[in-house]
Design a protein around this nucleic acid. Sequence first.
DNA 1: ATGAAAGCGCTAACAC
DNA 2: GTGTTAGCGCTTTCAT
Lengths: 336, 336
Amino acid sequence: MTSPTIYDVARAAGVATSTVSRAFSNPQRVSAPTRELVLRVAKELGYEANPHARALTSRRTDTLAMVVSDIKNPHFYEIIRGAELRAKASARTLVLVNAEESPRIEREQISRLSRSVDGFLLTASRLPDEDLLEFAATQAVVMVNRQVHGIPSVVLDQREGCRQLVTHLASLGHTSVAYLSGPQKSWMAGARWAAIRDAAAEIGVSAVRMGPFTPRVEHGAAAADAALTTGATALIAHNDLLAIGVLLRLADRSIRVPRDISVTGFDDIFASALCTPSLTTLGGTHANLGRAAVELLLDAADPTGRAGTASLQLVQPSQLVLRDSTGPAPVGRSAG
Amino acid sequence: MTSPTIYDVARAAGVATSTVSRAFSNPQRVSAPTRELVLRVAKELGYEANPHARALTSRRTDTLAMVVSDIKNPHFYEIIRGAELRAKASARTLVLVNAEESPRIEREQISRLSRSVDGFLLTASRLPDEDLLEFAATQAVVMVNRQVHGIPSVVLDQREGCRQLVTHLASLGHTSVAYLSGPQKSWMAGARWAAIRDAAAEIGVSAVRMGPFTPRVEHGAAAADAALTTGATALIAHNDLLAIGVLLRLADRSIRVPRDISVTGFDDIFASALCTPSLTTLGGTHANLGRAAVELLLDAADPTGRAGTASLQLVQPSQLVLRDSTGPAPVGRSAG
DNA sequence: ATGAAAGCGCTAACAC
DNA sequence: GTGTTAGCGCTTTCAT
């Protein structure tokens, strides 16, 4: 019934428990023959280490937690995938938890797991900086797609990406763009708006911000309606889900895209290639984000290393993907 | 640096460690004043129980794991959500792990976590029955959308649902349907085909099965092409993702839906209401699946209870959602 | 290179 | 109702 322990293995192999322990967690400190003996006996007995007993003394769990702000957003898939692969390569288990776009739930999930994992990947966290800093003081934490001064992070570049995006729109003749903002607590929403505003100023087009909107398809209708009141001929939605919602609403209102108005998104999710019209969007290699984040986290969680990467802020390039939802600005009239 | 333990709390409160322990895990076995004292002191000290120490003796972790066969499939969202809510209501943490449609990865994830959680929710497992039975012998396991004799499960009804689906198609004049099957290791694919075949026989329409196909949008092209060779005028795709891929391919090939051919899916994911044409699909209240599954699992994981629900096989009703992708069978010719 | 033994922080008998 | 105490299964000094 009850599974074998190191005592069983030690007895069967005729060695001390500490030798069994070493054979597993510190193989090079045991002579080759002894190690092989122990491992063979352990296998015969079907021994598997009890992770709790191990964690109780070693304070390591070999488990990492990834908190995603909304597991429904396909944008996270690639990040998750990249993180999983990297975690597996280092023999870590990666568990996912969902924050459902709620700071309260995010806080709850984190504190629930904080003693059970070696560190956290916080993707698009909705928590205030202070909470994150306080939290990072006692835990290994890496932020994904969010920067907080003093906490290691990896983000996709927005500044240069947004500049390219606005440049693309300007080159199509658009002189007025509207940013349909993401959630108020989204750092990314702030970063995007700042980058768009600055790029617009530099290039000489006008930019307004509407919202905030919860970045899901179903909120695209409200976003589209709001955007149409601005007279902007190009709409930059906070992400692809919202952009797709906007496209649907515009179609409903018989406004043609891109003929009457251009629409763009962010993230380059799979669906953005499939919707009608297909969506111009600012993407990037999200799997790399996940991979890099795990690497930073392994580093941060390493009790020995202190590899000095303490507070690296990594920025990876984004990538403008041109599709059918952007076109020349309409002449002689504004949309809506 | 190191966080306070029950010893610290016990000393500060002037009680025994066991009293502190009880105050937290067995409140009713401590007098009200003592309990309040202990809890107050604990809070002042910032005490939080060490889950590993707790698990080491009690053999309970208050954590449940949910293994999803492919986290990219939006079909799981509602199930996850329902499970999360129910787990939270019972003060359990729910962690998610991804099996990526791979039996090997699924097995790996399970065995990694098996000592760290109280039980598993296996959704759409791709593992063979024997593995599952062996596994369920030592762990609390509940299957979601898969039935295995001897393991508790909760599934959405397919038999009656598929009958309704085939009836719907027959009533539109279709006499020949093709099922575009899901993965070979998918129990659900087998269940759906059996139900479709039987319903078709009963109703008097012919049914063929094509595939298997990996149920993702990108495999819809191959599925559509294969289906067109059959001459069937109605295509039943294994799920909505595949169905959407089929729609895209048919549009590419200038085959009109539903005028030339009808298409249906399963799951009623959000996108199936948004694609063009919108998709007729067999859905159901997936959140209830997740909720019910957690309830069975809590039961199965309860060391005292043995509530006799040992091997309940729950079947919840599915629901046919009619949209624009099904219509009257074309007259005088077959598709393709 | 290996063994002996002391915890890690908690729970669960068992006493009182 | 509360205290005492012996582990849970492992890691980790410290000896040898």
